[in-house]
Amino acid sequence: MSSTAAAQKFDPARAGEYQAQSRIALAGYDACHELSACMLSATLGGEGAAHVLVVGAGGGAQEIVAASRLAPEWRFTAVDPSRPMMEIAVAEVARQGLAARTDFHLGYVDDLPADRRFSAATLIGVLHHQPGQEAKRQLLNAIASRLAPGAPLILAGNRYAYASQPLLLAAWGERWRMQGATAEEVRARLGKILEGADPPASEDAVAELLADAGFEPPTWFFSSLFWGACLARRIGDDAQGA
Rank of each mutant, 00 (worst) to 15 (best):
M1K: 12
R95T: 02
L190T: 03
V206E: 11
P200N: 09
R23C: 01
T102C: 13
E17L: 14
E216C: 12
P12M: 01
W220I: 04
M85N: 05
R146Q: 06
W176E: 02
G60E: 05
I64L: 13
G214R: 04
D103S: 14
L155Y: 07
A170N: 06
L210W: 07
E87Q: 13
G46W: 02
Y160I: 11
Q240Y: 04
A50K: 09
W176K: 10
L139A: 08
G173Q: 02
S3H: 09
D204C: 05
W74N: 03
A114G: 13
A211W: 06
L190M: 03
P84H: 02
F221N: 03
A211R: 10
N158Q: 09
L153C: 08
E34C: 11
W176L: 14
E184N: 06
G56N: 01
L112P: 10
G56D: 03
T122P: 13
V55G: 06
P72A: 13
A156N: 07
S68C: 13
W74H: 10
T182F: 05
V90Q: 15
T102F: 05
T43S: 15
G241E: 11
K136C: 06
H51K: 04
A213T: 01
A156H: 05
A49G: 12
E185V: 03
M85R: 00
G180T: 06
Y18P: 13
N141P: 07
